[in-house]
Design a protein around this nucleic acid. Sequence first.
DNA 1: CAGTATCCCAAGGGATACTG
DNA 2: CAGTATCCCTTGGGATACTG
Lengths: 137, 137
Amino acid sequence: MSEHMDFDAVIDAWRRGAAMSVESVGCPVRGVLDKISDKWSMLLVMNLATKPMRFNQLRREIPDISQKMLTQTLRELERDGLVVRTVYPTKPPSVEYALTDLGVSLVVPFGYLIAWANQNHARIDDARAQFDGVEAA
Amino acid sequence: MSEHMDFDAVIDAWRRGAAMSVESVGCPVRGVLDKISDKWSMLLVMNLATKPMRFNQLRREIPDISQKMLTQTLRELERDGLVVRTVYPTKPPSVEYALTDLGVSLVVPFGYLIAWANQNHARIDDARAQFDGVEAA
DNA sequence: CAGTATCCCAAGGGATACTG
DNA sequence: CAGTATCCCTTGGGATACTG
């Protein structure tokens, strides 16, 4: 499974899972995707995918994340089993963050989404410009 | 491109694009992904992928979306060129929403993410239970 | 049917200051 | 270095009421 998907395969899978998911109170897929789709999770996962990093190293890689959100997002990723936090008892302590196997497994799905965004952001910008232009006329 | 991706291919692509994306003010990828990752966009796209639908039909499919958010999210999807809105001048008017080609092209990337969520939400729940258990001990 | 408009609360998240 | 703790503003988004 998951080697290659086309439109019909996705729709088939969605149809089989949709009844359970949308209606039930705790749709697992929506829960997972809500977590994944916060402002910083994907960016952190992708950065840690390139190599394990320490706290302040991540801050430098993502200059516009606040300390609070970096800590908070890393904790959530750790809690969800996507990231491991390893403390080396040096002085001052150094802490390394790395993806778990589960975290690694998320990189490819993210990759498809990122590739899509790379390929299509220009079309989105165009569509938006046209929509706004027409509406303003 | 995009036929099949593995971890290394994703990382390579990420490395080539990362410098431009994270540092620059308007990273197109982050912009796109922020839009996509709001609470309802993906769910609407997936529902419209199964078939074009009218406004109240969508409300029934997604019982927990408010009228406000349905309108708002549909407008944004339309603005971004992912959805077309067609008004049939019947009485009372009926309005059909359908994916554009661009919208359709997003279904497969979403499919990978949804498949991942389906396959791994149990592992996430376990990780979370263990994390919370250890922390409480 | 397919919306708009308003109110309002709760969560998200940045800035700043402090700590082992 | 790697955080915690607070403050506070902004945004997301639900509830309700109204309209062509």
